[in-house]
Amino acid sequence: MNDEPNAGIRPDGWASVPRMEPAQAPRVWANGPGAARLRPDTPFVGERSPSRTVAPSPLDPGAGRDPHRVHRVLREQFPLTYDPLLRAWVLSRYADVATALTDSRFTHGHRPGDPPCAQTHVAVDEAELRSAAARTAFVLARRIAGRRQADLVADFCHWLPAGTVAAAVGVPYRDMMRLVRGRAASALAGQCTGQIAVREKALANFLANVLVDREHALALLDAPAGAIARAWAESLRRDPPVQIAVRRTGAEVRVSGGTIPAGEPVALLIGAASRDPERFRDPDRYDPLREDADQLTYGRGSCPAVLLAGLEAEYALRALFHAMPRLRLAEGFRPEHAGVITRFPRNLLVRPGG
């Protein structure tokens, strides 16, 4: 997904960044938490007056490098505010975002794993998906095993989701990549499974989290069944690949900080909700053994895309360390996540030979 598409709400329910010049953008002021209102003639976001505080925007300059400061202010001071750059009301607390993702009073778009997506599923065999994910991951890992240095984002994460789908549906890989880039993957694999880009970014986030501590990554491979799945879910919580989703109210809805009228667009800050200290202990820390983990990227229902994403994460880790037992991050390199709509490390430099 592109972080700078055209303005408005995408058909799949993700947010898109409106192209708006600063001088054109109206600003939101609040006289207190939740008291947001539109003021077209006020100064730019970030300015303050003795009596009024400006609600920050997730699209403010610098938010792509560090959105968590903005998220923190919104959660604590502006649980409900209108953002003229997103052209939507903004929710940032876990309880509100989790409700909006499933409540029937919110419409427009769905996540893989939500009930409506079942209507788009094609028949899948879990054993075949597992085999396809394993075969593809091991082939890709072997291709980079002999290199002095590799970028797992470009050389592995970018290829594994598409390659797994290609193997699962019996399409030659070279043809699948052409179809994926031509946006025809869903015709072969179903709407959810054909959404390749989210799985690419989620996989990059997962590998970035586990490879920061190489010994911990190795321990996951030897841990009891389910340990990798738990670490995967924690990565989705701490670093969701999609940071902002958009819904629309079909009825008046009461949330933290006020009431949203019917027929209004609502931006759900999944990234902010996933680090809400009211819901998670020490929320900024990646803890693969976390007992209070809960991710908002996927719904809880049965969906081949959700299953496939978890299998890709599992076999990515197994294949990489099987092909490269001494694999580690390149010397001096630390993953840096970037993006405001989608967020993931643009590079993940590793030394295959240690």
Rank of each mutant, 00 (worst) to 15 (best):
T42D: 12
G64W: 13
G46D: 02
P43S: 05
T53Q: 03
F78R: 01
S16H: 12
R27T: 15
L74I: 14
W29T: 14
T42Q: 07
G46R: 09
L59G: 03
P22A: 07
Q24L: 01
P56G: 05
A35G: 07
L80A: 00
E21V: 00
P40A: 07
P56D: 06
T53P: 02
A23T: 10
G46W: 03
D41L: 01
P40M: 05
A15M: 13
D41K: 05
P26E: 08
L74D: 06
P58E: 04
P56I: 05
G32A: 14
G46Y: 00
A88G: 09
Y82T: 00
P22G: 06
E76H: 01
T53L: 11
P79G: 09
R39P: 04
A63W: 02
D60V: 01
R72V: 04
V17L: 15
Q77K: 12
P40Y: 08
D83K: 08
F44T: 08
V54Y: 06
V28A: 09
R19C: 01
V70C: 15
V17K: 10
D66P: 06
P33C: 04
L74S: 07
R48Y: 12
A25S: 11
T42G: 05
E47G: 10
E21C: 03
S49K: 13
R69F: 00
L74A: 05
L86E: 01
W29L: 15
D83T: 13
P58S: 06
H71E: 09
A55S: 15
P18Q: 14
V54I: 14
G64K: 07
M20E: 13
V73Q: 14
L74T: 09
G34C: 01
P22S: 08
V70P: 15
A88K: 04
D66K: 13
N31D: 12
V73L: 10
P33M: 03
P50S: 08
V17N: 13
L86N: 00
F78D: 01
F78G: 00
D41N: 14
D60F: 06
Q77N: 03
